[in-house]
Design a protein around this nucleic acid. Structure first.
Length: 498
RNA sequence: GGCCCCUUGGUCAAGCGGUUAAGACACCGCCCUUUCACGGCGAUAACGGGAGUUCGAUUCUCCCAGGGGUCACCA
C-alpha cells in the first residue's frame, strides 16, 4: 500500500514549487491506488501566518490535487479526516513527548542547556576560524544528576540528537541513487525546542512513521538533512521509507524560485486568470517528462503515465513564456460559456462591462469571448485586449502611419459611404456577416476611387477602435452594434471635421 | 569555507556505447490575411573541460571547472 504525504508549513501563500511537490505525491498515490495525506507542519509558531491554511486548501482543491486523508475541506470548513490523526503537528505534542522519552532512555538523545548566546558565540568563533559551524557537544555528557539539578532549577533546555561519531549513514534516493554522509559532517540536531515543540527533523520522522508513509517525495533542499532522519528511523527500529528528492524550480537567474521575484504563489497565478488545469500540466512537465512528444495532459492522463524514475536530477527554470503558451492552448479549448465565465470577472473589475451586461447580454458576451479566445494567454490580459472595442472613449492612436492613413483623400468618401450603409442597415439583421457585406459593397461601389484593401479597412478600423491592430473588423462591428458604430464614426467626424 | 546534489541549444527536455543528437517554448524568416492574433512551413542554435575504459563515447570511470542546495531552538 502506497501512502504519501504533502506536509507544508502555514507560512503564507502556496508556492508553485510546493504545488508541484503536492502534484507528484498525488500522482504517485493515485496511480498506485494509495493514499495522499495532507499534514500541517506548524511547529514554528513564530512563522505562522493567518489564513495560510485556508489558501492552502483552496489552492489544492482548485487544482484538483485533493487529499484523501488529513486536512480536508468539508463544505467550506477545514476539517481532519483519517485514522492517523491529528494531522496538525501542534496537536500532536504528547505523541512527540512519548517518542523523545524513548530516545532519551536509550541514550540516543540528550538534554542541552546551552544558551542562545553561547551558541551564537560559538558559531561566530567557528566561522571566523574557518570551521564549519557545529554544536561542540558541551552538554553531550552531562551526568543524570547534573541534568536533574538543572531541570529542577528551572533552566530552559532543548533535547538534541546524539549522533554517533564518524559513522557513515547512507540511504537510497529513487532519483539520485546511493547517498552517503559521514556523521562528522552533521550536527547534533535539536529535536525538541525550548518551548517544548519538536523541530521539523523530529516531527517529520515520528509522523511519517506513525502515519504509515511509504514514500517521501519532497524538495531537494531536504537532501542534506535526510541522514539525520534515516538515523532516527534506525534508532527507533522503524522501516525506512523510500526517498524521492525533487529538483528545484529555478528563476531565470538559476536561483531557487522565490517570493522576492514576482508572483510565485498558486493564488497569484489563478488570480491572473491562469487555468488550474494548465498550471498543473505545466508544473508536471517541469522536472519530469513522459515518453513521447505529447505535452498537453489532463490530470487523469498524468496519473496514468507518471513515472518517478523519469524525474530529472537537475533544477528547472520556470519559463513564464511556456506557461503562457500552454495556458493559451487550454483557453482555445474552452467552450463559449466557460470563456464568458472566466472572462467576466476581469472585465467587470476593469470596468469594461457592467453587471447589467452580465445579466442581460449573454449572447453578446459570447461574441466578445469568441474574439478574445485566440488572442490572450491568460485572462488578466482580457481588459487590455478588448479595451479598444469595449471602451467608447478610446483615444485615437497618433502614430505617423495612422495619421497618413487618415489623411488620404479617400477617407471622407469612405466615411460617408460607411455611415450611409450603416444607417440604412436593419438593426435586427446586424451581424458579422452583414457587416462584412457592407464593407465589400463599399469596395465595389467605389472601385473608381480605389478604396480597397488597406485603404478600405484601416480607416474604418481606426475610426471605430482608434487602433491599427485588432480582431477581424466585421466581428468588431458585430460586437459594437449599429448604434455604437454610428456613434463612433460621428465622433470621429466631429473631431476631425471630415 | 565544509558537506551534498547537479551539468545536452536562450528555456523545458528526448537520449540510456555506434543517431543526420528528437520534440516543445522563445527568437528569426516565409505563407495565410485588411491589421494583429491564430494556424501552417522553414531556419538558427547544444552534449562544460581534461584524462582514461573501449574498435567506438553525449552515454561508463576519475579529475577539474561551473552552477545549485545545505550547514538554525525555520521548515
Amino acid at each position: 500500500m502506497v501512502r504519501v504525504r504533502f506536509a507544508p508549513s502555514p507560512t503564507g501563500k502556496v508556492h508553485v514549487g510546493s504545488l508541484r511537490t503536492a502534484l507528484y505525491n498525488y500522482l504517485y498515490a493515485k496511480q498506485n491506488n494509495g493514499q495522499f495525506v495532507l499534514r500541517l507542519e506548524d511547529t514554528d509558531r513564530t512563522r505562522y501566518e493567518e489564513g495560510s491554511v485556508d489558501s492552502l486548501l483552496h489552492a489544492l482543491y482548485q487544482t484538483k490535487i485533493i487529499p484523501d486523508e488529513g486536512l480536508v475541506l468539508e463544505g467550506n470548513e477545514i476539517g481532519q479526516s483519517g485514522e492517523y490523526g491529528p494531522y496538525i503537528q501542534s496537536e500532536r505534542l504528547n505523541i512527540y513527548k512519548k517518542y523523545i522519552q524513548k530516545l532519551l532512555d536509550d541514550g540516543k538523545a540528550y538534554y542541552c542547556f546551552c544558551s542562545k548566546e553561547r551558541l551564537d558565540d560559538l558559531r561566530e568563533k567557528q566561522k571566523q576560524a574557518g570551521e564549519t559551524p557545529r554544536y561542540d557537544g558541551h552538554c553531550r555528557n552531562l551526568s543524570p544528576q547534573e541534568v536533574q539539578t538543572k531541570i529542577d532549577n528551572g533552566e530552559p533546555y532543548v533535547i538534541r540528537l546524539k549522533l554517533p561519531e564518524n559513522q557513515i549513514i547512507s540511504f537510497q534516493d529513487v532519483i539520485r541513487g546511493d547517498i552517503a554522509i559521514n556523521t562528522e559532517d552533521l550536527d547534533d540536531q535539536v529535536l525538541i525546542k525550548t518551548d517544548g515543540f519538536p523541530t521539523y527533523h523530529f516531527a517529520v520522522v515520528v509522523d511519517d512513521h506513525l502515519m504509515g508513509i511509504t514514500h517521501i517525495i519532497r524538495g531537494e533542499e531536504w537532501l542534506p538533512s535526510t541522514p539525520k532522519h534515516v538515523y532516527l528511523y534506525q534508532c527507533f527500529g522503524w522501516e525506512e521509507p523510500q526517498y524521492v528528492h525533487l529538483p528545484n524550480i529555478l528563476n531565470a537567474d538559476h536561483k531557487k524560485l522565490s517570493k522576492r521575484q514576482g508572483d510565485v504563489s498558486v493564488e497569484d497565478f489563478l488570480a491572473k486568470g491562469y487555468l488550474p488545469e494548465a498550471l498543473i500540466n505545466f508544473l508536471a512537465l517541469l522536472g519530469w517528462s513522459p515518453e513521447g512528444d505529447q505535452e498537453i495532459f489532463s490530470l487523469d492522463e498524468l496519473v496514468d503515465i507518471f513515472e518517478p524514475e523519469r524525474i530529472n536530477k537537475s533544477g528547472a527554470v520556470f519559463d513564464r513564456e511556456k506557461l503562457n503558451w500552454m495556458n493559451g492552448q487550454y483557453i482555445k479549448k474552452l467552450s463559449d460559456d466557460e470563456m464568458v465565465d472566466k472572462m467576466v470577472p476581469f472585465l467587470l473589475k476593469a470596468g469594461e462591462i457592467s453587471s447589467e451586461d452580465v445579466l442581460n447580454k449573454k449572447s453578446w458576451l459570447q461574441k466578445v469571448a469568441q474574439i478574445l479566445r485566440e488572442r490572450i494567454d491568460y485572462f488578466a490580459q482580457a481588459p487590455e485586449e478588448l479595451k479598444a472595442i469595449l471602451n467608447p472613449d478610446f483615444v485615437m492612436t497618433d502614430t505617423e502611419e495612422a495619421q497618413q492613413i487618415m489623411a488620404a483623400d479617400t477617407v471622407p468618401v469612405l466615411y460617408q459611404a460607411l455611415t450611409d450603409k450603416i444607417e440604412a442597415a436593419d438593426a435586427e439583421q446586424w451581424n458579422a456577416e452583414n457587416a462584412q457585406k457592407m464593407i465589400k459593397s463599399i469596395q465595389k461601389e467605389h472601385k473608381a476611387e480605389k478604396i480597397k484593401g488597406k485603404a478600405l479597412y484601416m480607416p474604418i478600423r481606426l475610426m471605430l477602435t482608434g487602433e491599427m491592430h485588432g480582431p477581424d473588423l466585421a466581428l468588431i462591428m458585430d460586437v459594437l452594434g449599429k448604434d455604437e458604430c454610428l456613434k463612433r464614426l460621428r465622433a470621429y467626424q466631429t473631431h476631425h471635421s471630415l
